[in-house]
């Protein structure tokens, strides 16, 4: 196992007797886009604030590349680039001055690197303008620019798609994939937008009321032996169910012209052959994949998100 870039060990946060984060343990490897999903008020932002040292830990430890964020802050934070909540910049400075400001705080960032990053986020045309005149999307881009300026190994983005248009979201998504796959950095993204996370992340942790509920892998599912629910459209559903039950499959009518079968990929092919040879007309076969939203609602007990 590769050493994780971030280790959260039994992290708890209590403020005034109220437990906001409860014994959170989590490891993030390099090269992965990791989603942090939870309803509003579940503790996502608090966790991120503790990871970047803006908030103290009541209990537990956070290690970044082996350095404790509480005891060895200046070393630990060096590997981290982040946007916490909104990308708030100095509005009275130009975009370029904002970047120069952050560049000065870390040795070894050249002028060349600043220009490179500006180009990467596509702000060349407006970088000398005051941030006051920027749209929310442009501020978001500037936020990403300051976060990746020093080539961090861990990129933490809190609700990164806020205020981005669909094209911007797509661009960000592609860019995060490039960062994680080609440059091998770990990306930690928090959001309450399920569909967004499904497209963006490799794995997702679900948090509710400060507790880690589940960690799920999103990519790479659907192996040959996985059981899933297959919906088959036929001309005579009732007859088809009987024929399949007779052949030992667990089929149920799905309503309308369809039936539903719990089976794997090979099973699907076999059932198709069986139905066709028995003279049924098969109009369509589709696998019903549980969306992250279904999974999320399942584990959080259907609590409303939004």
């Amino acid at each position: 196992m590769v050493q994780p870039i971030v280790r959260l060990q039994n992290v708890s946060k209590r403020i005034g007797g109220r437990t906001i984060i409860d014994k959170l343990t989590l490891d993030l490897p390099l090269g992965e886009v990791f989603g942090f999903l939870g309803p509003n008020g579940s503790g996502k932002t608090t966790t991120i604030r503790m990871m970047v040292g803006l908030m103290s830990l009541t209990e537990g430890e956070i290690l970044i590349n082996g350095h404790s964020i509480a005891k060895d802050y200046e070393k630990a934070i060096r590997y981290v680039g982040a946007i916490v909540e909104n990308p708030e910049m100095y509005k009275y400075l130009s975009g370029y001055d904002n970047l120069k400001h952050y560049a000065r705080m870390i040795p070894g960032i050249t002028e060349h690197r600043v220009h490179e990053v500006v180009k990467l986020v596509g702000l060349e045309g407006r970088i000398q303008d005051k941030v006051r005149t920027y749209s929310l999307g442009m501020r978001q881009r500037l936020g990403v620019a300051q976060a990746i300026l020093h080539k961090p190994q861990l990129l933490i983005l809190d609700e990164p798609t806020n205020g981005l248009d669909p094209a911007g979201i797509r661009e960000l998504r592609d860019y995060l994939r490039v960062l994680s796959k080609e440059e091998g950095i770990a990306v930690f993204v928090s959001s309450h937008l399920l569909a967004e996370m499904e497209l963006m992340c490799d794995r997702v942790a679900i948090i509710q009321n400060g507790k880690l509920i589940d960690v799920r892998t999103i990519r790479g599912t659907g192996s040959m032996t996985d059981q899933s629910r297959v919906i088959i459209e036929v001309d005579r559903p009732q007859g088809a169910v009987e024929a399949l039950l007779a052949a030992g499959h667990s089929a149920v009518p799905e309503g309308g012209q369809a039936i539903a079968v719990e089976t794997d990929r090979d099973g699907t092919a076999a059932i198709n052959a069986l139905l066709v040879s028995a003279g049924f007309k098969v109009y369509g076969i589709r696998t019903h994949v549980k969306s992250l939203e279904d999974q999320f609602l399942e584990v959080t007990g259907g609590e409303r998100i939004g």
Binding site: V52, E74, I77, M89, Y102, I106, Q146
Partner: peptide
């Protein structure tokens, strides 16, 4: 008040 304190503090400086 502007929130810039967050980005200012997450640098390798005490």
């Amino acid at each position: 008040t502007s929130g810039t304190i967050k980005l200012l503090l997450i640098r390798p400086w005490s």
